[in-house]
Computed example of a mutant assay.
Amino acid sequence: MEPAYRERLGERLGRYEYPAPQPRRLLWLHAVSLGETRAAAPLVAALRAQRPDLRLLLTTSTATGWSAGHALLRPGDVHTWLPYDTPGAVRRFLRHHRPVMGVLMETEVWPNLVHIAAREQVPLVLANARLSPKSLRQGERFAWLLRPAAERFLRVLAQTQDDAQRLRDMGAPFVEVCGNLKFDITPPKALLERGQRWRARLQRPVVLAASTRENEEAPLLAAWRELPQPRPLLLLVPRHPQRFDEVAGLVAQAGFSGVRRSSWGEGDPPEEAARADVWLGDSIGEMALYYACADAGLLGGSFEPLGGQNLIEAAACGCPLVLGPHTFNFAEAAELAVQARAAMRAADIRQGVVYAATLAIDPQRNGWVDRALTFASRHRGATERMAERIVGLLPAVL
């Protein structure tokens, strides 16, 4: 269990040490983890621009989401953990905060949460909604539980037409396609500049393995060993912080010299880091830096049947990606990226490693960079569409 999660366990039970806010004044937004919280940032900004009186009740479910959520807060806002999906915890959460409406991000359909919100007269919107074919099949096994929850959403704002149809099949009655908020995330300029400076100082190609998941790193390192010398620098960034030590051990077991990003703080990489085989990206909130530092990337979560991670941030940073065969969590974005030649597909991790290492030194790499940036910019606009729909459902006065 994450330490921050354990420290505020009472909030997961719907028990709070702060006084109840004024009823029906807060717009509740739930973003489960880091990716959803970062995607929510432009939406929150757009909502505040359209409704300056907005006060936010932000809930998150992970330590990384909690940390990122603080940047979204203003005086008068409330930030707490999402309660466990039990009737008592959810009821206490809703009666303590009395939000005027709830906005749940992406896939957060919790049966008790949705059911009790309806009983407490808290309308819900599912924003940036997605539903993969695999999730739909799994949901159909529990249709008796999930269909009534889907039916209770006031609006569902879907990422794609395919997502919208699957959500309708799940029972959601009012579904509209608005696009993907993650296309509207602007990478921090300071992180991009730092990553580019690091790459220039290295004077060697860099391949990023971005947001890798359990069971992906060992095969990746084995495939990396098969590359001819001199190899690029491998920048390995696990998806979950609690696995940093485990992955550092895998790097050592594979016989590579490794350096942890955290070892040099805010400065530039020292000389010994420049000579290492592998950098372990053991930091939070620096993916834009890592993408900017890399010449090419491998998409974590896509080389095991896990559905892949968000590939849009890589494109916005100008980092061409090699995708594995499993990208069902972002199926349309992945297919569009491949069609736009902003990314390429590999059959397995061994092929992916070869493709990424080759792309990192490809004389035509700048063309891939340009196409990635164009792909990212072409699909912007979901933020304003979703903000307009949500504001249109709010009462005139909060």
Rank of each mutant, 00 (worst) to 15 (best):
E2T: 10
A4S: 14
A20V: 12
P23R: 02
L26V: 09
L26D: 08
W28T: 09
H30R: 07
L34K: 07
T37C: 05
T37V: 07
P42F: 08
P42K: 02
V44T: 06
A49K: 14
P52D: 02
D53I: 11
R55C: 13
S61Y: 04
T62V: 08
T62W: 06
T64Q: 14
L72S: 05
L82F: 15
P83F: 09
P83Y: 06
T86G: 15
H97N: 10
V100R: 13
M101G: 05
M105F: 14
T107L: 12
E108H: 05
P111G: 10
I116M: 08
E120D: 10
R141Q: 10
R147G: 06
E151H: 15
R152K: 11
L154H: 14
R155D: 11
V156D: 00
A164C: 12
Q165T: 11
L167C: 03
V175Q: 02
E176F: 10
F183I: 05
P187Q: 01
K189M: 10
A190V: 15
L192G: 07
E193F: 04
R194F: 02
W198Y: 13
E214I: 03
E214T: 10
E216W: 01
A223I: 02
P228L: 03
P228A: 03
P230S: 03
P238I: 03
P241R: 04
P241S: 03
A248D: 04
A254H: 04
G255Y: 01
F256G: 02
G265Q: 14
D268C: 04
E271P: 08
E271S: 15
E271G: 03
E272P: 09
E272W: 08
A274M: 08
A276H: 01
I284M: 14
A288S: 15
A288C: 06
D295I: 00
D295R: 04
F303I: 02
G307S: 07
N310W: 13
L311V: 12
V322F: 03
F328S: 09
A331I: 05
A334I: 13
A334W: 08
Q339M: 14
Q351A: 15
G352Q: 04
T358D: 14
R371V: 14
A372F: 01
R380N: 00
R385C: 08
L393V: 06
P395G: 08
A396I: 07
V397I: 13
